[in-house]
Design a protein around this nucleic acid. Structure first.
Lengths: 346, 346
DNA sequence: CTGAAAGCGCTTACAG
DNA sequence: CTGAAAGCGCTTACAG
């Protein structure tokens, strides 16, 4: 916005008088054919017998006029759009989902599909949106209610979505097995000889859906390996919070010698807390995170973590969307999405 | 996607037979009025004299049937939608823009506007998209070409966009003054008595648009303060890269005693490089970043940085979009968006 | 090889 | 207070 009004803003001066839209009728008139022909040419409709000469002319005129079909009209007519809607949860997404979206956008662009991202916030129900834009598919990075999902399916929209681990066999489900994430953390820690583990849980209640299965996996693996149950402490993104948790873990007759964190960000806070308490990592306390964020490579010491291999997931997700759209069988889930990245902290 | 086919997938079994859409005609028939009346009631059309009794009935039926107007039809009819499109650049966005989007989504939801985010990737031109969804406004977090912007304006779409510092007076422009960011970094460093500065530039060519003005600000402030020109080194997100830059800064007759980094992520890499080279922060070399990311609070030592106060920016952006939509005068740019956050690294 | 015509679902003058 | 009718721009049988 201009801080001071300027004289030379012709675009704005004539503002409020939008030029009429270029329609297929304009292209038809200008190239001396019917709208039918224009539609056939521009959509490469199979079985339309149109001379090369006519095609060339129509395309040239469309280009010259800057014609772009109205998606609204097309959607109204055909009942479908070229849109894939991604619904994001109301918690901060972070680099993993960002990367997933980027990849998906690129993959689907080659199929002439546009990915639109909706941040589920505040009070507009998602249903307003999908009824509005009638996307071909909706990809949820947050759980849908059963009614919502039913509604979309009934409207002929393909629904893919993250689910909790136990629902992974449902059609359209995709998810990293979050329990497995927790198990992997404990396996690594136990292999290093640690027996008493602390668990750094997130404080943001909105991520509870992810946090619960990870912690469940940690608990389960502790049981399996014959370790005592993990000592859970909430940790938010501050050194103070990390330090408080550290003090709690170190008290008692059997202090924890290793900490599994909900994710790298929380792990970084634990690292800072450990530093503040004068404890060495990994000698006094080992730490392992989840996600493999860039900052984890740069911390002191560099963070051992569980990577979710975004690339594999992204490729699978794109393939799953395309398959759903084509009515093709779903692609196989990728194996080995989880990878242990051993650096110095554990 | 199911890992194994399941028997109990009734939703999928009947798939491909989408239920017909509920239309305003259905609501009209069911409530014994005309479609006109349905439209009047549901849109609260001013000047429509409809009995409270009728309104109640229509609304009840609409609810019961789960009626939601077709955005495609509405857009076709009115030439406008309830959508605001945000165009993201093709580089990784990070938490600042994420926060901006979240806030914008919430602000605009109360005006019944939905924010849709488009990751500009690959080969689909943006114009395909805005012609397709005919949004009320397009907010660009990346520069538009002049033709693109012209096209949108002519189609009656409000265009807001980030611009380089020098264009800040253009209508629809919003931007944090990036040069000012660089100046602030140098001012702080100079106030601490540093005279020879290193600059850690990003290696990703896609962020050049942001990097250039920040570095220009650093250069300018060095000149003004009578400091020698900053010694620029590229740094990517790795300790090795940070260490290489550190060695370069420390060689020669007048080694740098402080480093300004393009952003916090790069600053974290510099910190890691300094650590690897056995240098103390800030005693041997001071470091200042930009963005105030969470990881910067947790690093060793905690990172001094320039915060862009996302809240203020978000509020301004929302207000600017709403004003543009209403044809109201643009809100004043927020003052003091930039804030120095002094922690321990400088 | 090409065109006239219907219809997707909505809103809005216009006419009762 | 309410309804019949036009028209937004497109695609697609259908008829030449």
């Amino acid at each position: 916005m201009a801080q001071h009004p300027t004289e030379d803003a012709p675009d704005r001066a004539v503002g409020g008088v939008p030029l009429p839209r270029i329609t297929s009728a304009d292209v038809a008139r200008e190239s001396g054919v019917s709208r039918t022909t224009v539609s056939y040419v521009l959509n490469d409709t199979a079985g339309a017998m149109i001379s090369e000469e006519t095609r060339r002319r129509v395309r040239a005129v469309a280009d010259r006029l800057g014609y772009a079909p109205s998606a609204a009209a097309r959607a109204l007519r055909s009942g479908r759009s070229d849109l894939v809607l991604c619904a994001l949860p109301d918690w901060p997404v972070g680099p993993v989902i960002d990367a997933l979206l980027d990849h998906l956008t690129e993959e689907l662009a080659v199929r002439d599909l546009s990915v639109l991202v909706y941040h589920c916030r505040g009070h507009r129900p998602l249903s307003d949106l999908w009824r509005a834009v009638t996307p071909r598919a909706v990809v949820g990075f947050t759980a849908f209610t059963a009614e919502e999902e039913d509604g979309m399916r009934r409207a002929g929209i393909q629904v893919l979505g993250t689910v909790q681990d136990e629902d992974l066999r449902r059609p359209g489900a995709f998810a990293v097995p979050q329990m497995q994430v927790g198990r992997l953390q404990v396996q690594h820690l136990a292999a290093q000889g640690h027996r008493v583990l602390g668990y750094a849980a997130p404080t943001d209640p909105r991520v509870a859906g992810f946090a619960a299965p990870r912690l469940a996996g940690v608990r389960q693996e502790c049981r399996r390996s014959g370790l005592p149950a993990p000592r859970v402490q909430p940790v938010d993104v501050s050194a103070d919070s990390g330090a408080a948790a550290v003090r709690a873990w170190r008290t008692g007759s059997s202090p924890a010698t290793a900490v599994a964190a909900y994710n790298d960000e929380v792990a970084l806070a634990v690292l800072a807390g450990l530093r503040a308490e004068g404890l060495r990592v990994p000698q006094d306390v080992a730490v392992i995170g989840v996600d493999d964020v860039p900052a984890g490579r740069l911390s002191a010491p560099p963070l051992t973590t569980v990577s979710q291999s975004v690339d594999l997931q992204a490729r699978f997700l794109s393939a799953a969307v395309v398959a759903a759209l084509d009515g093709a069988p779903e692609p196989p889930h990728p194996a080995d999405v989880l990878r242990l990245v051993v650096r110095e902290s554990a």
